[in-house]
């Protein structure tokens, strides 16, 4: 009996079929909407190639400021510098264990939610046979840690920009923009530092924390990072919103839609040009 049962093919009663009586679809709807809005905005901004720098503020989509660092290179590279940057955060988020959970559910419907049936095939479930993360392209998820290494570098740049955002003309000060840049930098840092791969690398890979000083240090790192890691999902979502918000704010100041309030008493509104 068991053999016959176990070897049967996919049993599905149809997309969304379930005995659940709660609002299981809520998370799916939220995810699809949030990712779509952010995705469309991100693509638009990457192509826009402008309004990303105003006063002491630099948009996270264009950080580090490659055009300022290597001006000659952009003589022959005509595309937006964002393309040289955005693959890294996209790769990090795309291979992130939390985002994987989220988009496998919301977009691949594999599964749509716990104990909810999935569509057999088609647009709602693009992959024919389920192979998990064992084949291309999903086998690439295993390289998450390399995206982590790049993300750590980007975080360092973010901090540089965060500090730059409170200096203007050699004068220390701050504006609403600085607050937003700092908020974004802090949440991005929390998101990157709460990474599951990092948790493995700084101590999780050890089988024992018993022993001398090095074991104690490893335990201290692992134990404290674990607390961060438990909130990884929260940082993942919030940092996504703050990145978008930060870019949007800078864009709106740069193109003159709104005015940045700041202690320097300067109005940069509209001076961030389309490069």
């Amino acid at each position: 009996m068991l053999e016959a049962f176990l070897s049967k093919n996919l049993v599905t009663q149809g997309f969304g079929k379930t005995d659940r009586k709660d609002a299981w679809w809520w998370e799916q709807v939220f995810t699809v909407v949030a990712l779509t809005v952010f995705g469309l905005y991100g693509v638009y901004r990457a192509f826009e190639n402008g309004f990303y720098e105003v006063g002491p503020y630099l948009s996270p989509f264009y950080s580090p400021n490659l055009k300022a660092l290597f001006p000659q290179a952009f003589d022959w590279f005509q595309l937006s510098p964002a393309f040289l940057i955005l693959w890294a955060p996209l790769g990090f988020r795309g291979t992130c264990y939390f985002y994987r959970r989220t988009y496998y559910r919301a977009i691949f419907n594999d599964p749509p939610a716990c104990a909810v049936d999935k569509p057999k095939q088609g647009l709602l479930r693009p992959l024919a046979d389920y192979t998990g993360e064992t084949l291309f392209p999903f086998i690439l998820q295993n390289f998450h840690r390399y995206f982590l290494y790049v993300a750590l570098v980007l975080v360092a740049f973010h901090w540089v920009h965060a500090f730059q955002s409170i200096f203007w003309d050699g004068q220390i000060g701050f504006g609403v923009g600085s607050l937003i840049v700092w908020l974004d930098t802090i949440l991005l840092t929390l998101y990157v530092f709460s990474c599951h791969s990092l948790r493995h690398l700084i101590g999780g890979k050890l089988n024992t924390f018993t022993g001398g000083i090095f074991s104690r240090i490893a335990y201290f790192k692992w134990f404290n990072q674990t607390k961060l890691n438990q909130e990884h999902w929260l940082y993942a979502w919030v940092s996504l919103f703050t990145v978008g918000l930060c870019d949007l704010y800078i864009r709106l100041v740069a193109n003159g839609t709104i005015t940045d309030w700041n202690t320097w008493g300067l109005d940069w509104s509209g001076v961030g040009c389309l490069h």
Binding site: Y97, R100, R101, D110, A115, T131, G132, T134, F138
Partner: peptide
């Protein structure tokens, strides 16, 4: 077959 797990976390839930 750990590669088949796509960490959608229903087990944890």
């Amino acid at each position: 077959g750990i590669g088949l797990c796509n960490i959608t976390k229903c087990c944890t839930e």
